[in-house]
């Protein structure tokens, strides 16, 4: 019998991707709650941004009566267009801040729930880095799902509400490229926020002695 101890192999990424994908698929409804926090926050940010984008697109083509209607609806026009007033920027920052707190809370709960599972897989030979990678990947999936669904929802609601207020002028000058880029960066923001939320609990969980993790209540 060999008495020497070897070093554990680091699992390749494709294995980690497979395991984390199956894991998130199996607890789809649980992770939907975390994802929903992201969806709502990103939807709000995307709604605000795409509303301003659309107004900026309509404004040059709008006749006097439509311009009056927009101005009387409470939108502030500055030299740089709509949406660059300090009030607008504060609103966006605050919504992101609230979202970060919500995400950290949701991820903390989701990881704490799985302490025992983490203890078990560490007994079976999982490295700390594997545990961290699993949680980071799951956070990326949640971020993508929440980000895309949230930003599409935000853009959709913004379009419909402006359509309701200002009529078909919105459709004629709908800024397709800007909308696409809003969906793009808002999804990126969601992935980033999701990662920010998960990184601390994932590190704590990975560093635990297996015995401590196994003692956790289920």
């Amino acid at each position: 019998m060999k008495t020497s101890v070897e070093r554990q192999v680091v699992l390749p990424w494709n294995q980690v991707v497979r395991i984390s994908f199956n894991s998130i698929k199996a607890r789809f409804f649980r992770s939907l709650i975390t994802t929903l926090t992201l969806t709502l926050a990103v939807a709000f940010v995307a709604f605000t941004w795409s509303s301003y984008d659309m107004l900026n697109a309509i404004w040059p083509h709008a006749d006097k009566s439509l311009q009056d209607l927009i101005a009387s609806s409470g939108y502030e026009l500055t030299e740089k267009g709509f949406g660059s007033s300090p009030k607008d920027i504060w609103l966006a920052i605050l919504s992101v801040l609230v979202c970060v707190v919500g995400i950290i809370n949701a991820q903390l709960m989701a990881v704490t729930e799985r302490f025992r599972e983490i203890g078990t897989i560490k007994c079976l030979g999982a490295l700390d880095s594997f545990v961290v990678r699993i949680f980071l990947l799951e956070a990326v999936y949640q971020g993508l799902l929440g980000g895309v669904s949230g930003s599409v929802l935000g853009v959709l609601v913004a379009t419909l509400s402006l359509l309701w207020k200002f009529g078909f002028a919105v459709v004629y000058s709908w800024p397709f490229q800007q909308m696409l880029s809003t969906i793009g960066w808002a999804s990126g923001l969601a992935v980033f926020l999701s990662l920010i939320g998960v990184i601390y609990p994932a590190l704590v969980a990975a560093k635990m002695q297996p015995a401590v993790a196994l003692r956790a209540e289920e």
């Binding site: 019998m1 060999k2 008495t3 020497s4 101890v5 070897e6 070093r7 554990q8 560490k122 007994c123 079976l124 030979g125 999982a126 490295l127 700390d128 297996p210």
Partner: peptide, 19 residues
Amino acid sequence: DEVDVAQLDAYELAWLRCR
């Protein structure tokens, strides 16, 4: 197996628990 567990690093410890 006559190996002092305290001397092992994280990778060796994971290998031990695994194998």
